[in-house]
């Protein structure tokens, strides 16, 4: 109970401080909403992540040059930010958010984290809690959630499409060198399922790509040659498992790779599902 009170006071204080400073923050226990930051300085690098304990959930960082940047905090699996993994280097792609410090560090936001598949045992830095370093407001602490019996918010149902139907594209983004479909991707796939069923699709085209990421230091990081094929095959399998007829599909992996320029390169690591009436 004492811990909860302490946590409440800390979060409350932080919220007040942040609200005074920026004037646009969410209430206690609600997630911090950062500005879009479309004009922030792009930054891309590969390094070992570091995790720092706090009185509640830990903060995640990565170093570039002499600077340790804040990446995000531990959240639930449905969150947009998927934290790094110790024992692995991460590719960090995003923009520096001027005027902000979170968990005591400058912020990269928006940020895309790719956990590189191969292990690196040197990536093992855990920093103990330091008084004064606390995470931004967040919904769930290190213990049970507060969801309980409260019904989860459901997205409003999409209106049914009306004829004449048109071809629609659903674009999925992947982390570097990965074909794993996380929640953000599977939600879009589900939308593609829905649309294909609603319009009784006559054809579904799946095209998968691989790409490079241009690091801030000028190095080009290129995804493995087979990864586009792997993305395409997995998507094809998913659609077949969902009950779509094999005859509907045209599945391809784009040859070569899309070349990144250091700005939003994560969007090039993609697959496009085209649902045709």
């Amino acid at each position: 109970m004492k811990t909860l009170q302490k946590f409440t006071i800390q979060v409350l204080c932080l919220t007040v401080l942040l609200a005074v400073g920026k004037g646009a923050f969410a209430a206690e226990h609600e997630e911090l909403v950062l500005p879009d930051n479309t004009n922030g300085q792009p930054i891309s690098f590969v390094s070992c992540p570091a995790i720092q304990d706090t009185s509640t959930v830990p903060c995640w960082f990565a170093d570039h040059g002499d600077t340790r940047y804040f990446l995000g905090i531990q959240q639930d699996i449905g969150a947009a930010f998927h934290p790094p993994q110790l024992k692995h280097r991460v590719l960090v792609e995003g923009r520096i958010l001027d005027g902000y410090r979170l968990c005591g560090a400058p912020v990269i936001h928006p940020v895309t984290i790719s956990v590189l598949p191969e292990m690196d045992l040197q990536c093992n830095e855990m920093v103990p809690a330091i008084p004064g370093i606390e995470p931004p407001p967040h919904e769930r602490g290190a213990g049970p959630s507060n969801d309980g019996l409260e019904p989860r918010e459901r997205a409003a149902p999409q209106p049914l499409p009306e004829p004449p139907f048109e071809a629609r594209e659903f674009v999925l983004s992947f982390t570097f060198d990965s074909a794993v479909m996380r929640g953000t991707v599977t939600r879009i796939i589900s939308q593609a399922f829905q649309y294909a069923r609603q319009i009784d699709a006559s054809a579904i085209e799946i095209t998968a790509y691989r790409a490079s990421s241009l690091l801030t230091g000028g190095q080009e990081l290129i995804e493995q040659a087979h990864i586009a094929e792997s993305r395409a095959e997995k998507l094809h399998t998913i659609f077949l498992e969902a009950g779509f007829d094999e005859d509907l599909f045209s599945v391809s992996a784009s040859p070569g790779y899309l070349r990144g320029n250091g700005i939003a390169d994560h969007l090039l690591r993609k697959a496009v599902i085209r649902v045709i009436p």
């Binding site: 531990q74 934290p83 790094p84 024992k87 213990g143």
Partner: peptide, 13 residues
């Protein structure tokens, strides 16, 4: 658990 987008490690119960 740690490989599914929650982070490694996670501070939980």
């Amino acid at each position: 658990i740690n490989s599914i987008g929650l982070g490694n490690p996670i501070k939980r119960t």
